[in-house]
Simulated assay, not measured.
Amino acid sequence: MQAAILPYSAGWQWINDGIQLFKRQPMAMFFWSLVTGLLITITYLIPLFGQMALIAAMPSLTFITLNACRHIEAGRQIVPGMWLAPMRDAVARKGLFRLGLAYLACCLLGGLIATVPFLDSLMAAINTDGRIDEAALLQAVQGPFITFAVIYVLISAFFWHAPALVGWHHIRMTQALFFSMVACWRNKWPFLLYGASWAVIFLGAQFADGFLMQLGLSAATAQLLMTPVNLLIAAVLYCSFYPSYMSVFGNNYARQNDPTPTDDHTPPNVG
Rank of each mutant, 00 (worst) to 15 (best):
A68D: 04
T65H: 12
I40A: 03
A124D: 14
I42N: 00
F30L: 14
L137S: 05
L38V: 01
F158M: 11
L48S: 15
G95S: 09
A57H: 10
K23P: 08
L84A: 13
P117I: 02
L112W: 10
Y44W: 07
I155A: 06
L104Q: 11
L112H: 06
F30W: 12
W83C: 09
L112G: 10
A85N: 04
C69K: 07
K23R: 14
A140K: 00
V141C: 03
A140S: 04
I46E: 13
A105Q: 10
V35Y: 03
A28N: 11
R70G: 08
I155P: 12
L61K: 13
M29Q: 12
M27V: 09
V35L: 13
Q142P: 00
L34Q: 10
P80V: 13
L54M: 15
F118C: 13
Y103S: 14
A56E: 08
P144H: 03
S156F: 02
A105H: 05
T36A: 04
A157H: 07
V116A: 14
Q77L: 15
A105T: 10
L112M: 13
F145E: 02
F148P: 02
G75N: 14
G143W: 01
A135W: 01
A53M: 12
F31I: 03
Q139W: 00
L104P: 12
L48G: 12
K23V: 04
L108V: 04
V79T: 15
P117E: 09
I113M: 11
G143K: 04
L138W: 02
L112I: 10
P86Y: 01
S33N: 09
V91M: 05
T41R: 01
L112R: 09
I72E: 00
A53V: 08
A105N: 07
H71E: 13
A124T: 07
R131H: 07
A53N: 09
G75S: 13
L34A: 15
I42A: 07
V141Q: 06
F97L: 12
P26H: 09
M52G: 09
D129F: 06
D89M: 03
K23D: 03
A68H: 05
L84R: 10
F31P: 02
Q139A: 06
W32T: 02
D89E: 07
C69L: 09
R70V: 01
S121W: 11
L112N: 06
G81Q: 15
T62C: 14
A135V: 11
R93L: 05
N127G: 11
L34G: 14
F145Y: 03
A68Y: 01
S60H: 12
I155K: 03
L154W: 06
P80S: 15
I113Q: 07
A136I: 01
F31C: 04
Q142F: 00
G110K: 02
I155F: 03
V91I: 05
M123W: 12
E73H: 11
M29W: 11
L39G: 03
E73P: 07
L21K: 07
G37M: 02
A140T: 00
R76C: 11
P86K: 02
I42T: 00
V91Q: 11
A157I: 00
I126Q: 11
T147F: 00
A136P: 04
L96W: 08
F158E: 02
L122H: 08
F145R: 07
Q25A: 03
D129H: 08
A105D: 12
L54S: 10
I132D: 01
V141T: 03
T115N: 11
W32M: 14
